[in-house]
Write a protein that binds this DNA or RNA. Structure first.
Length: 426
RNA sequence: GUGGGUGUAGCUCAGUUGGUUAGAGCGUCGGACUGUGGCUCCGAAGGUCGCGGGUUCGAGUCCCGUUACCCACCCCA
């Protein structure tokens, strides 16, 4: 047991897990580029105000989950708890949406929230996210949702193992009136609701839909739904998004009670849940539209939308689906030294092969020849070059095909060419 | 932040009502094959039993604290 361990809620990513991480990044990089998204790297910390104003002072994230500290200059700094706020801040700072320009951006990296860790929930966790700015058309909503869905399919989670939930949260024209309507409904049924939900009538009536209390669930089942109260513009936008999803053949379920916990969402919201491997933290990705966010940061009114997906939870869903993560051979060629006298020459040959573009490995632990072959087998080397005194005396080496077990003599001078040909590189 | 459960070799786990030198499988290393892998056989290394107190003649086993993980609440990716 070492003296130190990783801080609570953080993990070291090793072996198959770190390989899976890189796989998810590769899949995302390739797929997102095909949808026209460009990479953006924002700082891992921001002025606290960026998150407080964007995500909402009253949310749990801002209220109790942020890693906030004063730096040596007395500035209040916060480790990013999510990615959208930073991207929007950067887009405004660099005028990416000036003169009606659109911007499609994606990011990947760790986020930080001070929460009680459990399965699928760490204090440092990884997300990939995509944001589409200045795109008001419902087709943009559909495109983003398809992208999220296709990503999960691409990493090996079958559609049958996932659920796509969509909803519309309305906008400033219709949500306030609806909110009041729900508040009235709650007050009218106060006797049948828990104390917590009674309070929600004044603070955040929509959250009563999330209450797990059976009595509350029964009462709220009859509560008015925002779907039925949307203004004309929100209703037609929502209808167009759903229609596009049908055309694109992305299966979805309308979930009128889907309410996201970040204040900036308007109109379309969505979430992908995995039904195996996740426990109660089953949302592997989610997002929505935030048409008022740019204004809150002092920009001109600019629509936007985005999603984020979690690496940890995606991997759990992949494992439950027995998704295959490609694990390339660690080396194509292993250069084995027969004895101590030729060790240096084996190393220089390995180096020469690497310079020639071949993934080559050799021993640095003074292992026996037999053990070097075991290593070669373990790392998946297709060929072993045996460097021995007998061959070298004649200016030659032995090239063994590990699959067929056929050995051939090759000249020391021509070995790089021979190996490249054997590997099919030339 | 609240409640419940768990913590023994690198990994997955045994460990009897507290009783002498804490075990297995897998993995690792070595040998059988003195210049050659995947199978088989043999052998070896590897553990302050999460950490700290307490009870006891004696604690991996009981009690308390603490820490980490797991589950639920909560929240969200």
């Amino acid at each position: 047991m070492s003296q130190f361990q990783a801080p609570k809620g953080t993990v070291d990513l090793l072996g198959d897990t770190s390989r899976a991480w890189e796989h998810m990044l590769r899949v995302a990089t390739e797929l997102f580029a095909r949808y026209g998204y460009s990479p953006i790297y924002t700082p891992i910390f921001e002025h606290t105000e960026v998150f407080a104003r964007g995500i909402g002072e009253a949310t749990d994230i801002v209220g109790k989950e942020m890693y906030t500290f004063l730096d040596k200059g007395g500035r209040s700094i916060t480790l990013r708890p999510e990615g959208t706020a930073s991207v929007v801040r950067a887009a405004l700072e660099h005028n990416l949406t000036a003169n009606g320009q659109g911007a499609k951006l994606y990011y990947a990296g760790p986020m930080f929230r001070y929460e009680r860790p459990q399965k699928g929930r760490q204090r440092q966790f990884w997300q990939i996210g995509a944001e589409a700015l200045n795109m008001a058309e419902p087709s943009a909503d559909a495109e983003l949702i398809v992208l999220l869905w296709r990503f999960f399919e691409a990493v090996g989670i079958p559609a049958d193992n996932m659920r796509l939930l969509v909803n519309s949260m309305g906008d400033e024209a219709c949500r306030p009136a609806y909110r009041e309507k729900v508040a009235e409904f709650i007050r009218a049924h106060a006797a049948d609701l828990c104390a917590e939900c009674d309070r929600r009538a004044d603070t955040n009536p929509l959250r009563a839909f999330d209450c797990k209390n059976p009595g509350c669930v029964a009462v709220m089942a009859d509560a008015p739904l925002l779907r039925d109260e949307l203004c004309d513009e929100c209703a037609s936008h929502y209808a167009a998004v759903k229609e596009a999803l049908v055309v694109l053949d992305v299966p979805f379920t309308e979930e009128p009670k889907l309410v996201r916990g970040l204040d900036y969402y308007t109109r379309t919201v969505f979430e992908v849940q995995a039904d195996a491997g996740l426990g109660s933290q089953n949302a592997i990705g989610g997002g929505g539209r935030y048409d008022r966010l740019m204004e809150q940061y002092g920009g001109s009114p600019t629509p936007g939308l985005g999603f984020a997906l979690g690496f940890e939870r995606t991997l759990l869903a992949m494992q439950a689906a027995k998704a295959r993560v490609p694990s390339p051979a660690l080396a194509d060629v292993y250069v084995a030294a027969v004895d101590e006298s030729v060790r240096a020459q084996a190393f220089s040959l390995a180096s020469q092969l690497r310079d020639a573009g071949v993934a080559a490995e050799c021993d640095h632990q003074a292992r026996s020849l037999k053990s070097q072959f075991k290593q070669a087998d373990r790392i998946g080397a297709r060929f072993v070059v045996v460097v021995g005194p007998d061959e070298l005396a004649e200016g030659q080496l032995t090239l063994r095909d590990m699959g067929t077990k056929v050995e051939t003599r090759v000249s020391r001078d021509g070995v790089t060419t021979e190996v490249r040909r054997a590997l099919g590189i030339d």
